Simulated assay, not measured.
Amino acid sequence: MGKTLNLIPVTPLDYRRLAEARLPRFLFDYIDGGANDERTLASNVDDFARVLIKQQVLRNVDNLDTSTEIAGKPASMPVVLAPVGMAGLFGRRGEVQGVRAANAAGVPFTLSTVGICPLDEIRSASSVPFWFQLYMIRDREVIRDLLQRAMANGCDTLVFTVDLPMPGMRHRDVRNGMLDTGLRGKLGKVWQLGTRPGWVWDVGVKGKPHSFGNLAHVVPDPTDLAVFSQWINRQFDTSVTWKDIEWLRGIWKGKLLIKGILQTGDARDALAVGADGLIVSNHGGRQLDSVASSISKLPAIAEAVGGQMEILMDGGVRSGVDVFKAIALGASAVMIGRPWVWAMAGAGEQGVRDLLAVFKRELEIAMALSGVTRIADISRDNIDSTPW
């Protein structure tokens, strides 16, 4: 018998299959893959499945409300679209599609430092302030300029990523010839592009200009991924310490969230340098393989500093049920990266809107069958068991 045709995509894995069918292999694997043997990538998802919710019935759950506040602003549910580098190569002007879908759903959107669309384009597409994500690169004047432009374009929250002093070993990218500047690598990518004529026309041609919108003067052509990799290796700063974050805090006047925290000691350091919050994250399993999953590290970090700063998490969130689990274990909100990019690549802006609607409905059902009606009422008492 032939494969079953799914008429309507529902889950992130449904959209993942659509994305795989539409993207050139090197781009699909770039967003889909992780570091080394991808053990941490897998454990991010698997460890969520090992957390069990306590079902409680015959409670009055007539007035369910998933709304909350994230970084001082109202949101329809505790979900944020995470920063994803080069999102504009996975769909035509991908970051624009993402911010419009986020606005429609009433959740924050985060623009990556290495996004395709520039800050001013996102501002024009957005009806509310959006977040900006920053990597610390060696040229501090470039950093200062980026922050000034972000503030000028209405960004009110900065997500500072601290777990990328150098890129992780992502073997899928090497296998696909992404980093090969020789003839073999170029011919390989041309062949992969030839298998996806729809992407070539919709994104490759109609999605121009292809440049790192906020760093076009530094890395003009993101389609030359070997050049992009060389730039990263030169510019990402391995000498960054907590003192540099103090310098950053002196420039940035909005909310500051530190992304890439896995240890309670680092969480306390983030609090000490004046961060407003942190994001428990292992970079989606893309940096150091064999580190713990984000969800397994969340409870201890939330216990250490949760009463003093806002705690978010990312990595492995694949449903509204996962959102519920993260909130119960101490997060105020979650960030999703791969799910929204798979949806955008597979079904465009509408796909992201539909995915977020499913997340919201799943969260409502989890709340109803746990006997709670408000996000603030979700707690560790709603968890039946964890493996930690």
Rank of each mutant, 00 (worst) to 15 (best):
L256G: 03
L256R: 06
L256D: 01
L256P: 04
L256F: 11
L257F: 09
L257A: 09
L257E: 07
L257N: 08
I258K: 01
I258S: 00
K259S: 00
K259A: 09
K259D: 08
K259I: 06
K259H: 08
G260D: 06
G260E: 03
G260T: 12
G260I: 10
G260V: 12
I261P: 03
I261M: 04
I261C: 07
I261N: 01
I261H: 00
I261F: 00
L262Y: 06
L262S: 05
L262W: 02
Q263G: 06
Q263W: 13
T264D: 05
T264E: 09
G265E: 11
G265T: 02
G265V: 00
G265S: 12
G265I: 03
D266W: 00
D266T: 15
D266V: 15
A267G: 03
A267H: 12
A267W: 12
R268P: 12
R268T: 14
R268D: 15
R268F: 09
D269R: 15
D269H: 08
D269T: 13
A270L: 06
A270Q: 03
L271Q: 06
L271M: 07
A272G: 13
A272T: 12
A272N: 14
V273Q: 07
V273D: 02
G274S: 02
G274P: 06
G274F: 01
A275G: 04
A275L: 13
A275T: 09
A275S: 11
D276I: 00
D276S: 09
G277V: 15
G277C: 04
G277N: 00
G277L: 00
G277I: 01
L278Y: 14
L278R: 08
L278E: 11
L278K: 10
I279T: 15
I279R: 13
I279V: 15
I279S: 14
I279M: 14
V280Q: 09
V280R: 09
V280Y: 11
V280M: 04
V280I: 07
S281Q: 13
S281H: 13
S281F: 14
S281G: 07
S281L: 14
S281A: 10
S281W: 15
S281I: 09
N282T: 05
N282S: 12
N282D: 03
N282V: 05
H283A: 11
H283E: 05
H283P: 03
H283M: 08
H283Q: 09
G284L: 11
G284E: 05
G284Q: 12
G284P: 11
G284V: 11
G285T: 08
G285C: 06
G285H: 03
